[in-house]
Design a protein around this nucleic acid. Structure first.
Lengths: 379, 379
DNA sequence: CAGCTTCATGCAATCGATTGTTTGCGCAAT
DNA sequence: ATTGCGCAAACAATCGATTGCATGAAGCTG
């Protein structure tokens, strides 16, 4: 699987040299090798070190460092200058412990390595860091048990807020409740629980597929199939509803055979769905897929069967992953703003954190729009 | 940009009910709304709470919870049962502060939302969590200044180890040195500094492009162009070297005109490079791109010009991003194991953490292999 | 010059858990 | 009855920073 290169060399340990012991070891071959052994002792400077060196108390140092008015000008200057000189760095662990709140935001997502989610996490990281907060991540792998474990670890780490995009499996929320019970705000992102009593940042999933379906209808589609996601997720039910509502609005019949359900939404499953849909006695002339993976597979499958896209079959996906502009024909898709969603979730969290008593809107809904491309646009 | 839905409802705060005040407010319209205001006071149970309720000291509780032999059987049982009953959760902040080391691993990468990197981070998260560690992430956006800021924040958070994939801008490492000075292990991943005095997990970049170039040569290419990355990154220089070495081994001349350099490696830049390479008086018959973005753009550009792939032009990319199996013809690429690399980096970190005195191999090299696909395979 | 304010600083408790060092008790041996 | 031992548990210091309150000196007022 891998080969390891074994290289011996002295460690670089400047400032703590006095705390280290330089010793010479003899290797089995008898050739001496010089080796620095780093002792456990850290070289970290604390306010007490500063205090001792300046002959003042540590409370004075603490106050001076944040320019408290009750500390004399000269003392303040002296403290700050020594702090800089010795490279003093406040210990966040101690600060958080004392202040009874940390500045770490926990994030739970199903998988990080998916285009939409990694964008979301990127947005979270950006907004958090700009505000001086740090971001703890974890993946649930769509498993409720793992999600529970991750939530528990976050709780023990005393995060100051939690962002969750639920696993598909998740229908119970006891592991989330513990945060609310302790006054730690929770914001759901994208994958939202049924429960209305929670903060959330999301898109209007019903409206999104409604728009996407209307787009297909405007392109002349009359028999539109829909690949739906696992129905235990509210999100996927809403998307299905948008599809149904659009058909109804435009007077198209709803045919149960055209409603397929995916569980894992992988490319492989996409092929299976495509095969199923396109071998119907009366096959669809348009497909609304609940994600881009399955839409892409459908394009590939249709092309292999000589079905022309978009003339015979118009296709639209969901998420607007990067592949949309790579596959040929380019895949139309529903764009949802991942990075913005992450940023918005963080700002939502901060609103709750800041105004504990003031009412914060429960729900933030971000705009989506259809990205019309060659896979569905009949010119 | 977005609309906010404003919903009023009572917060769900079971366990801390005694600490909350249920009050009735009158809205401007005169309609009373019941509202729960959560006070700052946390309901968190500490060992002192357990101690008080059981009439023992907190040190006894602490020891009982970890089944220390010096605590009597009955006491231990009583402590554990009360702990469970009250939902006691150890405060990691306090534990870390006391034990002088946390269980958080810091990760700095250029961008999370890139396929290879998000896989890497996924691997890190998985390995870390399995070992009971948590993962702090941050992005440098290829900026040294931001990387320095992120490192500083991590230092203040007293992470127990750092994983870094350097920004392209980064050529100085003072911000990394502070960790080594404090005995905090640092492992570089993928993007490695010049300095040999560091731990690293990587692929053999020279060998990788060597193999990729040989692959093209075996397919009959005689004029192979190379899109190189920013040369200040060692990685990209090594990749260029592999290309040059392979040409030399097979007696092919090295033509400077065929060596193009990209700085941002975006799809757009890929188009520019493709245009430049393919409009040469004596254009190449094979292209080795330093990433998949630019390779994909080259395929698209070549197709638009009626250049046949792979007959007229064979193309191979680097990273094996998901698009490789989507684009047509499918893009050959050099596969590097992202998830494994992340896991390996964490395990490397743990090795250093565990054996402070024992020698740990400096460098771990993971295998790569060519994924031959239609873009380069001439049957 | 006693009494008061103002200013700069120190003291000590606190956050929650860990851990080296007593202490107190019961029991057996001398 | 004294000594010694072992067990179970308490005491107290510690990690690094924060913060309410006390202190003490200088300066001002009547």
């Amino acid at each position: 699987m891998h080969e390891a290169v074994f290289v011996l060399s002295a460690e670089c340990i400047d400032n703590v040299a006095m705390l280290n012991h330089k010793i010479a070891l003899l290797s089995p071959s008898g050739i001496p090798r010089t080796h620095l052994i780093s002792m456990k002792k850290k070289s970290n400077v604390t306010i007490h070190d500063l205090a001792r060196q300046l002959g003042v108390s540590s409370s004075t140092v603490s106050r001076a460092l944040k320019s408290h008015h009750s500390i004399g000008e000269e003392t303040t200057k002296a403290v700050k200058s020594l702090a800089k000189e010795l490279g003093y760095r406040p210990n966040n662990l101690a600060v958080s412990l004392r202040k009874q709140h940390s500045t770490s935001i926990g994030v739970i997502v199903p998988h990080i390595n998916r285009p939409f989610i990694s964008s979301l996490v990127s947005g979270v990281e950006q907004a958090a860091r700009e505000a001086g907060y740090s971001v703890l991540i974890s993946q649930s792998y769509e498993s409720l048990d793992i999600e529970i474990g991750n939530a528990s670890a976050f709780f023990n780490s005393r995060i100051c807020g939690l962002l969750v995009s639920c696993a598909n499996e998740t229908t119970e929320y006891a592991h989330i409740q513990q945060f609310k019970d302790s006054g730690i705000p929770v914001v759901f992102v994208d994958r939202i629980p049924e429960n209305d009593e929670c903060y959330k940042v999301m898109i209007d999933n019903r409206e999104a597929t409604f728009k996407a379906t209307e787009h297909l209808i405007r392109q002349g589609c009359r028999r539109i199939a829909h690949y739906g996601g696992p129905p235990q997720q509210l999100m996927y039910r809403l998307r299905r509803q948008g599809y149904i509502d659009a058909l109804a609005k435009h007077g198209l019949p709803f045919d149960e055979n055209l409603l397929l359900t995916a569980t894992k939404l992988t490319p492989e499953e996409g092929f299976m769905l495509a095969e199923k849909a396109l071998s119907l006695p009366n096959p669809p002339d348009g497909i609304l897929a609940v994600n881009d993976n399955t839409a892409v597979s459908t394009i590939l499958y249709a092309k292999s069967k000589g079905i022309r896209i978009p003339q015979d079959l118009a296709i639209i996906g969901f998420n607007d992953d990067p592949v949309c502009t790579i596959i040929e024909p380019n895949l139309s898709s529903l764009h949802q703003p991942g990075v913005e969603m992450g940023k918005m979730a963080v700002s939502h969290l901060f609103n709750i954190l800041d105004n504990e008593i003031v009412d914060v809107p429960r729900t933030t809904i971000l705009d989506t729009h259809v990205m019309p491309r060659a896979s569905s646009v009949r010119s």
